[in-house]
């Protein structure tokens, strides 16, 4: 069994897991399915020889799973309304068909599996990175050399996004003085933030 077949099997596994995660009415089951999907991605990255991304994916997945389980346990209310409009269904079908036609045209351009496009193009930047990174930056790990030296701006942007999202989380979830016990409005928990 070659790598391509294993990749396709894992991709099918991931797609099935995502579909179950979307469709299941139980929130906790959805979170567990998401964990299964992430495990599939981790193994896929390892198979495709990207250990840096596999490590990051694995660790972030574990932490996110813990966070999501903490956030969804006991809050098991389905958001499924049960009805689906005909127009929405037809729009979904049309988008899926257009997407498939697009993919059918794009996939042949990728070429054979295991023969990435940067090996077939003259003077591709990827080749430069691979051959020059030790000389230019002194880093033995080419991935680190790219994300922190050649493409440092991208990493700065990522760090900024993380910083902004944490600010957003703090603003939404900060600890405020709790509501009094006898206050009537218990429906939405975010009113705690609004009151003070």
């Amino acid at each position: 069994m070659n790598v391509e077949t294993i990749t396709i099997i894992f991709l099918a596994f991931i797609v099935i897991g995502s579909l179950i995660a979307i469709e299941t009415p139980n929130l906790l089951s959805a979170v567990v399915c998401l964990g299964v999907v992430d495990i599939g991605f981790t193994i896929l990255f390892l198979l495709l020889k990207a250990p840096d991304i596999a490590i990051t994916q694995m660790v972030v997945e574990v932490v996110c799973l813990i966070i999501l389980i903490r956030a969804t346990v006991n809050r098991d209310k389905s958001a499924d309304t049960g009805e689906r409009k005909l127009f929405g269904l037809m729009t979904t079908g049309a988008i899926i068909i257009i997407l498939f036609m697009f993919i059918m045209n794009v996939v042949p351009l990728f070429g054979e599996f295991g023969n990435p496009i940067f090996t077939r193009v003259e003077n591709a930047p990827s080749q430069t990175y691979l051959s020059k990174c030790l000389e230019d930056t002194g880093a033995a790990n080419a991935v680190s050399a790219v994300i922190l030296d050649y493409r440092g701006y991208d990493t700065l942007g990522e760090a900024t996004i993380l910083f902004a999202s944490v600010i957003g989380a703090i603003a939404l979830l900060r600890k405020k003085p709790r509501k009094k016990i006898n206050e009537p409005d218990e429906s939405d928990s975010l009113s705690v933030v609004k009151d003070e």
Binding site: V63, I66, I67, R70, A71, V73, N74, R75, A159, L162, F163, S165, V166, A169, I170, L173, R174, K175, R178, K179, E186, S189, V192
Partner: peptide, 23 residues
């Protein structure tokens, strides 16, 4: 930076749960 961010988000979400529990 990443360590502090993830810890903050986790602790805040955990404490939000606790507030809901008591309510």
């Amino acid at each position: 930076k990443v360590c502090a961010s993830m810890y903050l988000v986790f602790a805040l979400l955990a404490m939000l749960r606790i507030n809901d529990d008591t309510q």
